[in-house]
């Protein structure tokens, strides 16, 4: 049973806009080590982390600008999906039904908008192709042949927008997420970290002057050694570095941030805190914001806080 009391299991997919598809695929497949799954009829490329059972989690769409088209979450069943669909409508969200197969291998999706201008989706069914290179019967520890950073799975997104409380309230009140961590500037919440699992965050929001922005798409690595290797790969291939390798105060994840060839920010990280529904909300205060974001340098970095797509 999902920890979210409403049946939302995990972040399931994102669709990203990229300026050049060939460069983007090389980045996500060869540098980050995601598995390239398919190019669909409209030219979108699907990829997944090698430990994911579902067919895909990353969808790339070539466009004239970078950024996030939508972020989707998988729910436990079609019954849960139709119940949440009605709950979103009752709450006042604009809901759009996306038919099964619009993303090849994915069932019907319920897309809803949000006060911060982001589009989110829920879905119950996706083709399960299994972990890459690892069977479900008597499986070995890991598959040989992984490339680059060997990103294991899509973990979360951090999104920027103005009314992050209102968007957070949809996730909390309708979708059963809970707030695990926050950053406060007096009475004003400037960062909102939400969980639908035992992860410290499945989605996070930071207050920003522009709506609809993607700060980063994040992928899990198992160890600090993997994060260091990722930092090496970033230098070996002249990938645009943002920050790290280092640690966050919020969530205590050990992390590195960099940009894909279109300017979408990526994160790979390991470690960090865990969450259960009876945990109190962890709070960082504005006077400690440097340490909250950059635990080691303890200084705010303008690029990290202002550059979005």
């Amino acid at each position: 049973m999902a920890i979210s009391s409403k049946g939302v299991m995990r972040p399931g997919h994102v669709q990203l806009r990229v300026l050049d598809m060939d460069e983007a695929v090389e980045h996500y497949r060869d540098r980050m080590g995601l598995i390239e799954v398919q190019t669909d009829a409209s030219g979108r490329v699907y990829l997944k982390g090698y430990t994911e059972f579902d067919k895909f989690s990353i969808v790339l769409r070539e466009a004239d600008e970078a950024g996030l088209d939508f972020m989707g979450f998988k729910v436990e069943s079609p019954e849960v999906l139709s119940g949440l669909r009605q709950d979103l409508i009752d709450y006042g969200c604009n809901v759009e039904d996306i038919p099964a197969g619009e993303l090849d291998g994915c069932g019907a999706r319920v897309r809803f908008d949000s006060p911060t201008g982001h589009f989110f989706e829920l879905y119950a069914e996706k083709e399960q192709t299994g972990k890459w290179g690892i069977p479900n019967l008597n499986p070995d520890a890991w598959p040989e042949g992984l490339k680059g950073m060997q990103a294991t799975r899509f973990d979360h997104c951090l999104l920027f927008g103005r009314d992050i409380d209102a968007t957070s309230d949809i996730f909390i009140n309708v979708l059963g997420f809970r707030r695990s961590e926050q950053a406060m500037d007096g009475d004003e919440r400037i960062a909102s970290f939400l969980s639908c699992s035992t992860k410290e965050h499945d989605i996070a929001f930071i207050k920003h002057e522009h709506d609809g922005r993607l700060h980063h798409v994040s992928f899990w690595l198992d160890t600090w050694e993997h994060v260091l290797r990722a930092a090496d790969i970033i230098s070996m291939h002249d990938i645009s570095l943002d920050f790290g390798p280092s640690r966050h105060g919020l969530t205590h994840g050990a992390t590195i941030y960099f940009f894909d060839p279109s300017g979408n920010r990526n994160e790979v990280f390991c470690q960090g805190d865990y969450y259960y529904p009876d945990h109190p909300v962890i709070t960082w205060t504005a006077d400690q914001l440097g340490k909250a974001v950059f635990y080691h340098s303890r200084e705010l970095n303008e690029r990290f806080l202002t550059v979005t797509t």
Partner: peptide, 12 residues
């Protein structure tokens, strides 16, 4: 020149 994403996506 302020440095952002270095990839043509962020406009900085």
């Amino acid at each position: 020149i302020p440095a952002g994403c270095r990839g043509g996506g962020c406009g900085v």
